[in-house]
C-alpha cells in the first residue's frame, strides 16, 4: 500500500525532525513517497531522500507553492492522490492548514493529530486536551492523517531514495504578504531535549529574560503558557498546550505556571517534569517529578548561578 507524505518545507528548507518522525509513523502503513513542495524545494527533496524508509521523493517547485498557501498545496496533493491510499503529514500548523482541505476535496474525513497507528485504517488520537485517547477506525477509501510528532521517534538517515521532479500548482485565492519569524540560536521547541517554560508568574516581558537565561544555561528551548503569551511576555509560537505546541522533551521545567489542563495537554508526556511555583497547592505539582515551592525570582537566579 502506498503512502504520500507531505514533508515540512519552510522557505526551501526541510524540517528534518518533523518529517523524519512522520516517516516513522507512515512506514507502518506502507511504502512512503515524500512530497517536497515550495517555491524552492530541490534541496529539501535531496535531504528528504536520505531518510531511512523513504522509497521515493517527489519535488514540486513553483512560485505558487511558496509559503505553503493552503489552496495551491491542497490542489497539488489532490492531483497526486489517485496513486495513494494514505495521505499523511506531521501535525504542524502548515499541515493542519492544508490537510483538512485535502480531505474535504477527496470527500473523506481527516484524522488530526494521530498519536498511534493500530493498523492501516485504525488510529489513536487524543481528544479533550489529552484527557481521553480515542481509537478511530476509518471507513473511507483514502485516509488523510496528521501525526503528532512528539509521540514518534525520528527515522534514521543514510538512505538515498530517488528524487523525481513533478509539476507545481498555484491558486489565485490567496497570496503571501510577510512572515514575522524571530531568529533564534536556541533549539526548536518541538524537538528540543530540554524545554524551560515561563507562565503568568514571571510577571513581565523583561522578567522573561530570567527564563531565557536559565534556558540558555541548559541549552534548552523556551516555552510559555497561554497566559504568558496573552499578556505579551512571550511570542505566540512559544505557547505550549492544547492549542499551542505539544512537546515531550527529556526535561521540562515549568516556572510560574499553575498547571491548567490546557497547558498539561502540551507537556505531560515529558520524561522528567520540574516545577517551580510559590503556591504549594498549584496543580502542576501533581504531574511534576521534582517540585520546588519557591519564589521564582530567587530560585531561578540561584539556579542559573549554580549551573
Amino acid at each position: 500500500m502506498a503512502v504520500l507524505l507531505l514533508a515540512e518545507v519552510t522557505d526551501g528548507h526541510l524540517s528534518m525532525d518533523a518529517t523524519a518522525k512522520a516517516v516513522t509513523a507512515a512506514a507502518k502503513l506502507g511504502d512512503v513517497t515524500v512530497l517536497c513542495a515550495g517555491a524552492r524545494a530541490a534541496d529539501a527533496a535531496k535531504e528528504a531522500a536520505t531518510i531511512a524508509g523513504v522509497k521515493k521523493v517527489l519535488c514540486a517547485e513553483d512560485a505558487g507553492l511558496g509559503h505553503r498557501l493552503a489552496e495551491a498545496t491542497a490542489d497539488l496533493i489532490v492531483g497526486l492522490a489517485g496513486d495513494y491510499e494514505h495521505i499523511v503529514a506531521p501535525a504542524t500548523t502548515d499541515a493542519k492548514n492544508v490537510m483538512p482541505r485535502v480531505a474535504a476535496l477527496l470527500d473523506v474525513m481527516v484524522i488530526s493529530d494521530a498519536s498511534g497507528v493500530v493498523d492501516a485504517n485504525t488510529f489513536e488520537r487524543p481528544i479533550y486536551a489529552g484527557n481521553a485517547i480515542q481509537t478511530v477506525k476509518s471507513k473511507d477509501g483514502k485516509k488523510v492523517v496528521t501525526f503528532r510528532t512528539s509521540t514518534f521517534d525520528a527515522a534514521a538517515t543514510g538512505n538515498s531514495a530517488p528524487v523525481e521532479t513533478i509539476a507545481g500548482a498555484s491558486s489565485e485565492l490567496s497570496s503571501w504578504v510577510e512572515d514575522k519569524v524571530a531568529a533564534s540560536d536556541r533549539p526548536e521547541l518541538t524537538s528540543a531535549g530540554i524545554v524551560v517554560s515561563g507562565g503568568r508568574g514571571v510577571g513581565s516581558e523583561e522578567n522573561f529574560a530570567l527564563i531565557e537565561k536559565l534556558a540558555d544555561k541548559l541549552g534548552a528551548a523556551v516555552g510559555a503558557s497561554r497566559a504568558a503569551v496573552d499578556s505579551g511576555f512571550a511570542p505566540n509560537d512559544w505557547q505550549v498546550g492544547q492549542t499551542g505546541k505539544v512537546v515531550a522533551p527529556n526535561l521540562y521545567v515549568a516556572v510560574g505556571i499553575s498547571g491548567a489542563i490546557q497547558h498539561l495537554a502540551g507537556m505531560k508526556d515529558s520524561k522528567i517534569i520540574v516545577a517551580i511555583n510559590k503556591d504549594e497547592e498549584a496543580p502542576i505539582f501533581q504531574v511534576a517529578d521534582f517540585g520546588l515551592v519557591a519564589d521564582l525570582f530567587t530560585a531561578v537566579p540561584e539556579l542559573v548561578e549554580k549551573l
Binding site: 490567496s174 497570496s175 504578504v177 512572515d179 514575522k180 519569524v181 518541538t190 509560537d237 505546541k245
Partner: peptide, 14 residues
C-alpha cells in the same frame, strides 16, 4: 495575520 509554528504569517485572501 496567522499564528504559525515559526511565528506569524500575514496573507491576503480573496
Amino acid at each position: 495575520t496567522r499564528e504559525v509554528d515559526g511565528g506569524l504569517q500575514t496573507i491576503k485572501v480573496k
